[in-house]
Write a protein that binds this DNA or RNA. Structure first.
Length: 876
RNA sequence: GGGCGCUUAGCUCAGUUGGUUCAGAGCACUUGGUUUACACCCAAGGGGUCGGGGGUUCGAAUCCCUCAGCGCCCACCA
């Protein structure tokens, strides 16, 4: 079958993706082969594909396709994450547009909207992945809120609770007064803001003395319950044991001592407001201070705010400063740069707030997960992330797993009374009732008396089980799938979620299977634009991936993404890379078109040039295979691509095809044809992970294939032997051809004009590539001569000299200058080599190999100088 | 404030344990080209004192120190 015209990526990609799907090649079942598994980092269920996904999933697809070709039972599990807060925010926003306020809805009503939204938008992103060519096992598509995955979450929660690892605590959390919800630390963005530092004067009880504190938040003085000084601060020894009086409020508070106070900052005196500052809370707990919360949920002041009640915190700040000034309690105001936490979504300034939350004790859980990475049992790529990982794991803090949200897994804790401890934790309401009855000793308790905790679990509390839950390994720990596919092989994800997700998956893996969830973690970089800005929707600097696929083809994008993306480094995305990618695809197409378009003549024998060329390419290919193996094992995907790219473009297209190409409209001999087809097929195999579509297309065009003969499930070429000798001989020939081309260019000799070439052999040289030289140099006759020729242009390769007689006069001056320059350079080079060899310390200390090389350089240089000199003599 | 990392050709990056082929690749650039698979092409070129300075060594892009610039992660000094 012949190819013709231009490559039509769109129709080809559609055709083969459907073919792969129809033949179920992506699907994996437990069998006797070794498994190779990847679980996808589940994107947000209602998300759309962005450039980060493109990079991520391209890499995963390359790995999974290569594993498939290598004979593994390759299984790539796709799926989506319910993304609790992100999705809930979208639903709230959408409802708002429709004039519905979340607060007016019941939980059930809201969830109905959320599910509707999920069903409408859910999975769009997975459809987009198909366009990219992702060979996921779609029959295994999972969602973190699927029944069995949800059940897994509850089972784990109950289990950890029963182990005493989950507890309920009254803690300070991030409060978004605009959305009236708490936020996770990750959703708080700290921004540097120019603010003020106010110096406030407090009177000392029973004395004329005063003390001055510095604060950024004068409006919180109503919540002050102590003043703190450093016990080592000699300036304040007179204050020890005294009490201070809050201005305006006129309440007296203790002066406590704690080394926490930085003597250098401000005045060295600190006002303590345990309800509104995490550090103050810690201090308060330590010194058993009263906690006075002065804010309402919307960050207006409550009744503790006295005459400021009902006013917003920032309004109060302005007003109270004036009042303080008027009563002489404001000593001074300084500008002060501080970091203010703001809500990622509402931009509201976060208010620290105390509330009841659920926590998971992390320290003991983290231990095996830390060791796994340090021992390289779980291998982070690149390794630079190991340090960060260790630091985080060694300083891991308890994980706040509750969120004041509805969308997600509702915490399976059931309250049956009003006391803080009047609750039970169970996988189901029925169990909870039983437990509650037991706990209370009250058999009259009914289902009606149970109130489930309204909070939902942190999204990561479900995704940390992902590598297990997708194989149902939590609910049925002994099922054959989890035993077969777990631990998975590679995880490809972004470093941003190393802690939130990767570390926690490792933790969960050891806790629930006593084994790591994956062997390698490939951390990609962030996709940035040319100006190094992170690509984001809000900046509008991210191209639409689907438009790109439309324009450059999926294969083109895949190559474009991979051309410059070493692990862990950010990727400076440039559309030109996609252009280069589609140019590569075009090159593959055209080369195949050439080969498949040849007419075969059974009766002509194989030209010498073709025989040697094919011999050479086979060795070149083998060398590339070895290099690829090395690249892939080190997860150097870009290098693997570049190795393939150069092999195909330069060696296959640039050299091999040119060497064997029959004259225009002439037929090719059968032997060469068959050899080239075999080579082409091997090429397609190593190309396939990067450019799955075009490679399958060409593969199928070569001959009719049965479904079990598709490229996607073919066998990766074997590494056999490399003939280094022929590779070396070729390189010499290539240098000669290059020399001829240079002369043609310098002397303006068109290619179609044949030239004669004479060779003076100064070292034993093989002649096997002479037919190739003649063909690619368009040489009419290639002769060996025994002495220098005169009146000709010459060039040297190694110590051989080549002479090209040309018509017309030779510019002797020019030739002399060229030769002289080369001679000067070579002499200088020889000098430096000899200097090195005369250095005794070098000769005594350097390894033999290195010295031998220097001696060879010396000999080569001397030989070259001899030939250069005699050439010069001839010209003069 | 603490920790980690980076700085090599105009751009994006390789450079394994210091020593053949160590100063490289791809792109871009310059020049030339109907060499009928491909101008998404072919060929030939130019381009870097490896961020600055110092040290160790026979020998440093590579190891050490120091300075400068950049990036990331962690941390709410009121």
């Amino acid at each position: 079958m012949a190819l013709s015209g231009k490559y039509d990526a769109k129709s080809v990609e559609k055709k083969w993706y459907n073919y792969w799907m129809d033949n179920n090649y992506f699907h994996s079942e437990v069998d006797e082969r070794e498994a190779y598994t990847i679980v996808i980092p589940p994107p947000n269920v209602t998300g759309v594909l962005h450039m980060g996904h493109m990079l991520n999933n391209t890499i995963q697809d390359v790995l999974i396709r290569r594993a498939r070709l290598n004979g593994y039972n390759a299984c790539w599990v796709p799926g989506t994450d319910h993304a609790s807060i992100a999705t809930e925010a979208k639903v709230v926003a959408k409802l708002k547009e429709e004039g519905i306020d979340k607060n007016d809805l019941t939980r059930e009503e809201f969830l109905e909207h959320a599910w509707e939204w999920t069903h409408k938008h859910g999975g769009i992103i997975l459809e987009q992945l198909k366009k990219l060519g992702a060979s996921c096992d779609w029959q295994r598509t999972a969602f973190t809120m699927d029944d069995n995955l949800s059940a897994s979450v509850l089972k784990v929660f109950v289990d950890l609770y029963n182990k005493g690892l989950i507890y309920r605590g009254y803690r300070m959390v991030n409060w978004d007064p605009e959305a009236k919800t708490t936020l996770s630390d990750e959703e708080v963005i700290y921004e540097e803001k120019q603010g003020n530092l106010y110096y406030l004067t407090y009177k000392i009880e029973g004395s004329k003395d005063t003390l001055t504190i510095a604060t950024t938040r004068p409006e919180t003085i109503m919540g002050d319950t102590a003043i703190c000084i450093n016990p080592n601060d000699e300036r304040f020894t007179h204050l020890k044991g005294k009490k201070a009086i809050i201005p305006i409020v006129n309440r007296s508070i203790a002066i406590i001592e704690d080394e926490y106070v930085d003597m250098e900052f401000g005045t060295g005196c600190l006002k303590v407001t345990p309800a509104h500052d995490p550090n103050d809370k810690t201090l308060g707990d330590k010194h058993q201070l009263e906690v006075i919360d002065i804010f309402n949920d919307d960050a207006t002041l409550n009744s503790f705010g006295m005459h400021y009640e009902g006013k917003d915190r920032f309004v109060v700040r302005k007003e109270i400063v004036k009042e303080l000034e008027s009563i002489g309690a404001l000593e001074k105001t300084e500008t002060h740069l501080n970091k203010v936490g703001t809500s990622e979504r509402t931009k509201a300034v976060i208010e620290p707030k105390l509330s009841d939350q659920w926590f998971l004790k992390m320290k003991d859980l983290a231990k095996p997960a830390l060791d796994a990475v340090l021992d390289k049992d779980v291998h982070l790529v690149p390794e630079k992330f190991i340090n960060t990982y260790r630091y985080w794991m060694e300083n891991v803090r308890d994980w706040n797993i509750s969120r004041q949200l509805w969308w997600g897994h509702q915490i399976p804790a059931y309250f049956y009374g009003d006391g803080k401890e009047d609750f039970v934790v169970a996988e189901s309401r029925e169990e909870a009732l039983v437990l509650a009855k037991e706990k209370m000793g009250n058999t009259s308790l009914t289902d009606m008396d149970l109130r489930q905790d309204p909070d939902a679990l942190d999204t990561w509390f479900s995704s940390w089980l992902w590598p297990m839950s997708v194989f149902n390994g939590i609910l049925e720990p002994d099922n054959k799938e989890i035993k077969y596919y777990y631990p998975t092989n590679d995880l490809v994800t972004a470093p941003e979620i190393l802690f939130f997700w990767v570390a926690r998956m490792i933790i969960a893996g050891y806790e629930y299977r006593g084994e790591k969830p994956f062997t390698n973690v490939y951390l990609t970089g962030i996709v940035r634009d040319k100006q190094r800005r992170k690509m984001s929707k809000s900046l509008g600097n991210s191209p639409d991936p689907l438009d790109l696929i439309d324009q450059y083809g999926a294969d083109g994008i895949r190559v474009g993404m991979l051309l410059s993306s070493p692990a862990g480094n950010d990727l400076m995305f440039d559309e030109d890379l996609c252009k280069q990618g589609s140019a590569f695809v075009n090159k593959i197409f055209n080369a195949s078109k050439l080969v498949l378009g040849w007419d075969i003549d059974q009766n002509i024998s194989q030209p010498e040039a073709s025989a040697i060329a094919i011999d050479w390419y086979r060795s070149k290919f083998q060398k590339a295979l070895v290099e690829l193996e090395n690249n892939y094992t080190k997860y150097r995907i870009s290098d693997a691509l570049m190795t393939t790219y150069k092999l195909i473009w330069d060696d296959f297209c640039g050299w091999l095809l040119e060497m064997i190409k029959p004259a225009y409209q002439s037929p090719i001999d059968i032997k060469t044809y068959q050899d080239v087809i075999a080579i082409l097929e091997d090429n397609l195999k190593i190309l396939h992970p990067f450019v799955p579509f075009i490679s399958e297309e060409i593969w199928q065009q070569i001959t009719d294939r049965k479904p079990e003969e598709a490229l996607i499930i073919s066998k990766w070429p074997l590494i056999t032997s490399i003939n280094e000798d022929v590779v070396k001989k070729f390189e010499l020939a290539a240098d000669v051809i290059s020399g001829i081309r240079t002369i043609r260019k310098e002397k303006n000799i068109a290619f179609k004009e044949t030239i004669e070439l004479s060779v003076l052999n100064n070292e034993s040289t093989d002649t096997s590539f002479d037919p190739v030289i003649s063909k690619l140099g368009n040489i009419s006759s290639l002769r060996y001569v025994s002495k220098k020729m005169e009146g000709v242009i010459s060039f040297r390769v190694k110590s051989n000299e080549y002479f090209v007689p040309i018509s017309g006069t030779i510019n002797v001056e020019e030739e002399i200058k060229k030769l002289t320059d080369e001679l000067t350079y070579t002499e200088g080079f020889l000098k430096s080599v000899q200097k090195k060899l005369q250095n005794e310390r070098f000769v005594n200390n350097a390894p033999e190999q290195v010295i031998a090389n220097e001696r060879k350089k010396e000999a080569d240089a001397m030989a070259k100088i001899t030939t250069l000199k005699s050439s010069l003599d001839n010209l003069k």
